[in-house]
Every structure is written in C-alpha cells, then in structure tokens.
Simulated scan of single mutants.
Amino acid sequence: MTEIRSVKCACKDCVCVVEIDKAVKKESKYYCGDTCAEHHKQKSGCDHAGCECKG
C-alpha cells in the first residue's frame, strides 16, 4: 500500500505542495503556511516562490 506524504495546499488559488507532517492543519485541511490557513486575512500570497495565491 502507498502512503500519502504530501498534498496540494487546501487554499484554492495556491499551487504549493506540502508534506503532511510539515503542513499547517486547520479544520481538517492541510495548508502550506499560516497565511493560507488564515484565508489571507493579512495579505495576499504565501511567500513561496512561483505562487501568487490570493486566498
């Protein structure tokens, strides 16, 4: 059986893939960081190269 170790960030606009054990988990979803997990309340973008998510 294959174990899933990484997933796409749950933020709809984000293109980041995050390792589950390093992800920010909120409401049973995995995010690449606090900005995405907080639905971009403070700013746009997640500060990862090549990603310009807006939340």
Rank of each mutant, 00 (worst) to 15 (best):
M1W: 04
M1H: 01
T2F: 02
E3D: 09
E3V: 02
I4M: 09
I4H: 03
I4P: 00
I4N: 12
S6Q: 12
S6P: 02
S6N: 09
S6E: 14
S6T: 13
V7W: 06
K8P: 01
K8A: 04
C9I: 00
C9W: 03
C9M: 03
A10T: 11
A10N: 14
A10I: 01
C11D: 10
C11L: 08
C11G: 01
C11I: 00
K12Y: 02
K12T: 12
D13K: 03
D13Y: 05
D13H: 02
D13L: 06
C14N: 08
C14H: 04
C14R: 07
C14G: 02
V15T: 15
V15K: 08
V15Q: 07
C16P: 09
V17C: 14
V17D: 13
V18T: 14
V18E: 00
V18S: 01
V18I: 12
E19I: 00
E19Q: 13
I20P: 06
I20G: 06
I20R: 12
D21S: 11
D21A: 11
K22Q: 11
K22H: 08
K22R: 12
K22S: 14
A23G: 01
V24T: 07
V24R: 13
K26I: 02
K26G: 01
E27D: 14
S28L: 09
S28A: 12
S28N: 15
S28W: 08
K29I: 04
K29V: 04
K29P: 04
Y30K: 13
Y30E: 05
Y30I: 07
Y31F: 15
Y31D: 03
Y31T: 04
C32I: 11
C32F: 08
D34L: 10
D34W: 15
D34Y: 13
T35A: 05
T35H: 08
C36I: 00
C36T: 02
A37D: 14
A37T: 10
E38S: 13
E38N: 07
H39Y: 14
H40A: 06
K41Y: 01
K41P: 01
Q42M: 10
Q42P: 03
Q42E: 14
Q42W: 15
K43G: 02
K43N: 05
K43L: 08
S44I: 06
S44F: 09
S44L: 06
S44H: 03
G45N: 08
G45A: 04
G45R: 15
G45T: 13
G45V: 15
C46K: 01
C46G: 15
D47A: 14
D47N: 08
H48D: 03
H48A: 14
H48V: 15
H48S: 09
H48L: 08
H48M: 11
G50S: 10
G50K: 13
G50I: 07
G50R: 12
G50P: 11
G50D: 07
C51R: 05
C51T: 03
E52D: 13
E52H: 05
E52G: 15
E52V: 12
K54M: 06
K54V: 10
K54S: 01
K54E: 09
G55E: 01
G55P: 15
